[in-house]
Amino acid sequence: MALSEIAEAGHRTDVLAGTKPRKQARNRRWAFLGVVPFFAYIAVFLLIPTGKLIVGAFTTTTGAFTFSNIASIFHAPYPAAFEFSVELSALSALWGGIMGFLVANAVLHHGVPRWVRPAYLSFSGMAANFAGIPLAFAFTATLGNLGVVTILLKHLGFNIYPSFSLQGLLGASLVYLFFQFPLMILLMIPVIEGLRKEWREAASNLGATSFGFWRHIGLPVVTPSLLGLMVLLFGNAFSAYATAYALGISNLVTIQIGQFINGNNVFAPQDAYALAFGMIVIIVITIIIYTLLQRRSSRWLK
């Protein structure tokens, strides 16, 4: 995820910034020309569309300022969609966060066989990117009505249907877990590596058990990062569209937004703008929380 890097980058000092002779100073006046194509591109394909939808969220079709678009978010079916989006994202982030942390810690244990680390890391890199259509159908083949595991469980006497469904909170969060969990493993590994060997050894030397180390030092030190990364996972799940679409979940914000778009046409654009704006607000909040937590943990893990 780009974000984990970004927080770091914030603290970075400019190695390249230095005093330069006059010739360079003259050049610098024109140096910005070199980045014009990039910023123009970003403006056209990212900044202007974003600006347009934010403005659109607060204007009528004729361009007059209004809060009525935003107000419409609070009418059915949107509150339920936001609620389910938040629940699903939070649950999958919670599961993924905790499991990812535990597995990352296990992978880094010095006693595990040598092949474990590359195997888990490369697989995680794959699984974290394996979201979307194929993932949804992979789970249909696993835990769908006729899924391999469903039928296996049925043979064993456990009939998970109809109480279970891949469209429900539990089922959908399991599907999301398939990318959240490995993502957390990848993001958590540098955090756990940040726990210095000297801390473990000093704790042990002073009489603490492994449990004592985690209770007094390990967990207090990694908790901000752990929470921060779980917030990141939340944002990751919150903006997912394709997986949910292929699973046939309809009461998610992203799916609701998708329903307004058909080709190059946006129906009821003011509602779509308002919903999209609502999503941006929630993601910005998660990023702010993430940054604050990251700042706190970087105090210790430097």
Partner: peptide, 12 residues
């Protein structure tokens, strides 16, 4: 691109 995921970007 994280703040404005694909589904949001396409709206604008």
């Amino acid at each position: 691109p994280f703040v404005v995921p694909p589904i949001v970007l396409i709206v604008g």
